[in-house]
Design a protein around this nucleic acid. Structure first.
Lengths: 225, 225
DNA sequence: GCGACTACTTGACCTCGGTCAAACAACTAT
DNA sequence: ATAGTTGTTTGACCGAGGTCAAGTAGTCGC
């Protein structure tokens, strides 16, 4: 872990994030005052389930995995945050972290003073509003995961993930996975082997996979799955 | 469905709910103005996934099941709300309902004007604060469900549910299920048959089940599970 | 080029839990 | 009581996916 300075390109990322994007510059600057920036290696732990943390985190670059611990060291991902996402606002209001967080690849993380943010939310309705919308969005994300776990088989979940990256309208297209298959497996609640098998099932429906490159030949076929 | 009048005992329930409990009487009264009260039979649908609703719901009595729809009419519960809980605040900010809701037993439901509540939240920081904490709590609930689904087997999930109703300290105790086993199965993401089998597995660890009455002889045995 | 990692895939096996069918139990209405 | 309805349990079966163990790519260093 190394401490860094906030650059202007970092600010650009903040400016177009869901949370900060809604707020006027002055407010953003005020919230950012005293924030610290740090770089982390893959597998660096940011905080642990049960910790009482009073910071809020923001992914400037890289990827963070949020997970719960089970018996015998088992881990279950409850969310994965790419560049531009904020997390651990929960802990700020609930008192302790409900999950652990670690960098899923080399990442740069911004750490805001939670008490200050809370203060702002209590005074500035605009900040409160932004927080509310952020929380609604986060709630929907976990609800999505839960519902997919309960309703879909492994290949269906993968198909659904692929489709969520597909601009609707086009029947064939391709894209690069934004992270390792390992991480995708975790996010979808699958063992890596199961993800692999799911991909090879989908191959029969016109999906080709070369490394991180995914190619779709027939959108309808995927939707039918 | 029948329209009703808000009684004083209904107000008492509101007053000690997580959301309204934090707010001053005057604010509560203002939010409640224009709210409508209705009674519903089991299986009455309150709204459907995808509906654009501009009401927020509150369970005065009974039980509401929130669920997502899958292929071929499959349903997956994403939350179950007992008396005193508020729901569908999500839809207010996201535009449409992310899930369907129906009464899981005969229930009395209070329906608040969402636009007005939103208005209040935008003006009164106290309301915003209450909303934020409510959303954090809801987020944690779904996260709990997701993590349990991914980390625990059926008997473990049931054990965990039982333990969550056990006053910590006592080694043996008993309580009544607050709803049908059917509903519990749904909440835990199990088929009713699987719940039944889970109970009979736990019987070997000192759990006895007679109808809705659950009796625990050995707390530690459950925790070890 | 070579070896040494690490990511990913494949195969074999087995357990958990879903599904269908049937038996049972509790409740209601007649 | 009798029959019907609904909630719950049990048995038999099977398929999805976890786990362990090899094997195959890639990728990095040199």
């Amino acid at each position: 872990m190394k401490t860094l300075q906030l650059t202007s390109s970092d600010r650009a990322i903040l400016a177009c994030s869901r949370f900060f994007g809604r707020l006027p510059h002055a407010t953003v600057e005020a919230i950012l005052e005293g924030a610290t920036l740090s770089s982390h290696e893959e597998h660096d732990v940011l905080f642990r389930q049960g910790d009482s943390i009073d910071d809020v985190f923001f992914v400037i670059s890289g990827l963070v995995r949020l997970y719960r611990l089970g018996k015998e060291g088992r881990e279950a991902d409850v969310a994965v945050f790419p560049k531009g996402e904020m997390f651990a606002e929960n802990a700020m209001f609930l008192g302790r972290a409900t999950a652990s967080a670690e960098a899923a690849e080399a990442s740069i993380i911004l750490r805001l003073d939670g008490r200050k943010l809370r203060q702002f939310a209590a005074v500035d309705p605009e900040v409160a509003q932004a927080l509310i919308e952020h929380l609604c969005h986060r709630g929907k994300m976990t609800e999505d995961l839960l519902a997919e776990d309960r309703l879909l088989t492994a290949p269906q979940r993968v198909a659904s993930y692929i489709l969520s990256h597909c601009p609707n309208g086009s029947t064939s297209f391709s894209f690069r996975l934004p992270f390792q298959k390992n991480v995708l497996a975790g996010k979808l609640g699958l063992a890596p082997e199961a993800l692999s098998r799911a991909f090879s099932t989908l191959r029969l429906s016109g999906v080709s996979v070369k490394g991180r490159l995914i190619e779709i030949r027939d959108r309808q076929a995927l939707e039918r799955f």
